[in-house]
Write a protein that binds this DNA or RNA. Structure first.
Lengths: 333, 333
DNA sequence: CTGAAAGCGCTAACAC
DNA sequence: GTGTTAGCGCTTTCAG
């Protein structure tokens, strides 16, 4: 591999000039710049990442902590990851992939200067990793709002508002008997941030309207969704609308509804809270409150970069939920 | 951050001794080792990854090239990734995540010494990236068998054998009218390695038995599966067994079968070719030929490490397919 | 069994 | 606008 010195020699300039051509940190005559750029191309030169990290104390790498084997929906995770990786490249950053269950992985990435910042997904309300993260004194961004962000940057959908919105949207259509099918008991048990906040918003709205509702968790998979919708129909036989906040259970819920003789949309309304593409791919295109996962991943990177550049203070960014109407909801006459 | 020098001072030894304690590359008296290890713990010392990479020309990082937004099933991708990341940690390696559509990403990772080896997924028969990969002269492993591996290591399920096995298993059960629903036309059009090889094996077996079959691609999603199974029922009204090699279309196929009045298992047999957990999560637990994605990811890492250590020659590892019986297939009387 | 010291390739003062 | 050079923190000869 060619080094910066080889390039310098080839272009007839000094090492530092090559370095500055690359970084743009001081002005270079058009003439010189050209010769250097030619030499770089000629030699296929790439700066050695390690050497650069050592000299500049910047690794140009972001560490992403992902829950690879979690009960969280893979689809959503992949979208976060996609958003993070693509936006990272816009900032000329690479992404180091860490898993949740790599003990000490976070410390390793931070303290060995492997990464300039950390992005962590699947945040619980009282996430035990947050104190660790804070102690590292490195820029960190959470995808998911914890109870106490402790001065870290956060991006998330405003799930509380989403819960409220779900209720209001359906009551606005005239529905009076509304149920909610939520995440798996495991997710709820872990007090995963988004799950609880959605529930709070939803229940709060129902209470303000002084109207009862049924809330059921659902296990993952077809069977889980099926069981959950059966319990709902049992507890609330006159139900006319159901909110589903569980991607993996969605197909089962729809099947169950059909099996019970309910036409989706015309009969019972279904409002999903999930990424748009998941909503679209179902048996019936579902009206949904979009979880803009790719966008959230991108924002996470932007927040991280802002912290790395030292310009910005930690920031909490909650995205406003919105309903996209498709074929699964209808106004009650 | 503490440096190796701080540790050396604290332990009253030289830099090199600390380094050797860490690497184990020369013998150290128990006494000294102990003092050094204490100092390391005391100071919370972590070697600077960049410095280490610079001095040793080893980054301890594997680059993983993943098709993040592809039409390939996310579930499967995540499993490969999981396998790669967990096994990488066993080798004390970290994983850099690159995307398919990051032009020059491969070159960057390799030539800037960001990664010691590359692992690439979603390989096409005539993959245009392979020549690039070969020119890099870095250890590289393909997850997916191309037409010509060009001296790179490869791990894959033996899809040709899987196609044959699918046919033989079903004919073994007495089925005579068998159809296959394959990947999306896009995947087939790209000549994705696994798609074509499965088809070859399957068709070859059918021809040897001198029996006709119907092959239909399916678009992703519920609608895609539904449409595909309808076409199959149209072309082959007496069909008694269908092979499905398309995770995303699976739910639609099952729904379509039901809608046409066929009970799955007792009526029409369904054999899926997909990861085990996908097969299990369907409306009916499906008999399947497992795609052991996690295991393949792990093997990919092992192959990469073997190349890095310089000990082994490139190796092509094809895994033997096996049928796991669940509830969706039955012998024809 | 241990130390001294020469780089690894780059960045960023500091000089001019 | 450009060159010189002192590190960055580690690994690894070479010496003893």
């Amino acid at each position: 591999m060619a080094t910066i010195h080889d390039v310098a020699k080839a272009a007839g300039v000094s090492n530092s000039t090559v370095s500055y051509v690359l970084s743009g940190k001081r002005s270079i005559s058009a003439e010189t710049r050209h010769r250097v750029e030619d030499a770089i191309k000629q030699l296929g030169y790439r700066p050695h990442a390690g050497a650069r990290a050592l000299a500049s104390s910047r690794s140009s790498t972001l560490a992403l902590v992902a829950p690879l084997r979690a009960d969280v929906d893979v689809n959503v995770i992949m979208q976060f990851v996609t958003g993070v990786v693509t936006r990272a490249r816009d900032h000329e950053m690479d992404v180091l992939l860490l898993t949740q269950d790599d003990p000490g992985g976070i410390e390793r990435a931070a303290n060995s200067s492997l990464a300039d910042a950390l992005i962590m997904m699947d945040i619980e309300a009282e996430d035990p990793r947050i104190p660790t993260l804070v102690e590292l004194r490195r820029p960190a961004v959470l995808i998911g709002l914890p109870a106490d962000a402790r001065g870290l940057s956060v991006v998330d959908l405003d799930f509380e508002a989403a819960g409220r919105l779900a209720w209001q949207y359906l009551t606005g259509l005239g529905h009076r008997q509304i149920a909610l099918i939520g995440p798996t008991p495991a997710v709820l048990g872990r007090h995963t941030s988004y799950a609880n906040r959605l529930l709070d918003g939803y229940r709060g709205a129902a209470e303000r309207d002084d109207r009862p509702t049924a809330v059921e968790p659902a296990e993952a998979g077809h069977a889980g969704g099926l069981a959950a919708i059966r319990r709902v129909l049992d507890r609330m036989p006159e139900v006319s609308a159901v909110v589903v906040h569980n991607e993996a259970a969605l197909p089962g819920v729809l099947t169950g509804l059909r099996a019970a003789g309910h036409e989706i949309g015309t009969g019972i309304s279904v409002l999903a809270i999930c990424p748009a593409d998941v909503a679209v791919q179902q048996a019936v295109p579902l009206t949904s409150i979009d979880i803009p996962a790719i966008r959230m991943g991108k924002i996470a990177v932007d927040l991280a970069m802002a912290r790395i550049d030292g310009s910005d203070d930690p920031e909490i960014r909650l995205l406003v939920p919105q309903v996209t109407e498709r074929d699964s909801t209808r106004a009650l006459l």
